[in-house]
């Protein structure tokens, strides 16, 4: 229960931190998608209810803080979480390149979704260098996700003596990404 209580605070912390970091390092031009990585981590490692709650709250907080239309990032994060969750049922999400590539793909997907909604539904213009920014942002997210997963594994090991969130779902016959 305590997990659900802390989700909003954690989400606010992560979103504000990524905003500040992005502002500091790239003057706000490139977003550092820490919240997206957290959602992917939730999809890979957590159970459905916990992970979905996290994705919902994270998306909503990002919607609120970034000032976009409410529900846009919530929907995107929900989609990404669901996709990650189903991927984790089929594959052992341990290999670093798999994590990196999947995060890169999710980042592209999220950006595309947001751009499409912006352009087609809200009729807003996208900037000319959006593709370049998107590419850089996706690569950055890929690298950051590898670091994030590694750090979480180390933290869990040092606190609990083992990985708290297993990379293979119990009761599933996930195909190892090692092969």
């Amino acid at each position: 229960m305590i997990f659900y209580f802390f989700i909003p605070f954690m989400a606010i912390g992560v979103v504000v931190f990524q905003t500040v970091l992005s502002d500091l390092l790239f003057s706000g031009w490139v977003s550092i998608e820490l919240s997206l990585i957290v959602v992917i981590y939730a999809g890979f490692r957590m159970d459905l209810i916990k992970g979905m709650s996290l994705a919902l709250v994270m998306g909503f907080v990002l919607d609120s803080i970034s000032g976009t239309v409410e529900g846009l990032f919530t929907l995107a994060y929900l989609m990404i979480f669901t996709m990650s969750f189903f991927v984790s049922l089929r594959m052992v999400t341990e290999k670093q390149y798999l994590i990196g590539l999947f995060s890169l793909f999710c980042c592209v997907l999220e950006s595309l979704l947001v751009s499409l909604v912006d352009r087609l539904i809200l009729s807003r213009e996208t900037s000319a260098d959006a593709l370049l920014i998107l590419t850089f942002q996706a690569i950055l997210t890929g690298f950051l996700s590898v670091g994030f997963f590694y750090a979480m594994r180390r933290i869990e090991n040092s606190i609990y003596g083992k990985a708290l969130q297993p990379s293979q779902r119990p009761g599933t016959s996930g195909v190892s990404a090692e092969t």
């Binding site: 909003p8 605070f9 606010i12 979103v15 504000v16 919902l56 998306g59 909503f60 907080v61 919607d63 609120s64 803080i65 239309v69 409410e70 529900g71 846009l72 919530t74 929907l75 929900l78 539904i121 809200l122």
Partner: peptide
């Protein structure tokens, strides 16, 4: 979530209580 998004796109409502709470906490 889709309903929420559609509603917000259609009506472009002002910040709701939840959003205000998030911003206040942030």
């Amino acid at each position: 979530v889709l309903l929420l998004l559609s509603y917000n796109i259609k009506y472009d409502s002002a910040a709701g209580l939840a959003k205000k709470a998030v911003l206040e906490a942030a």
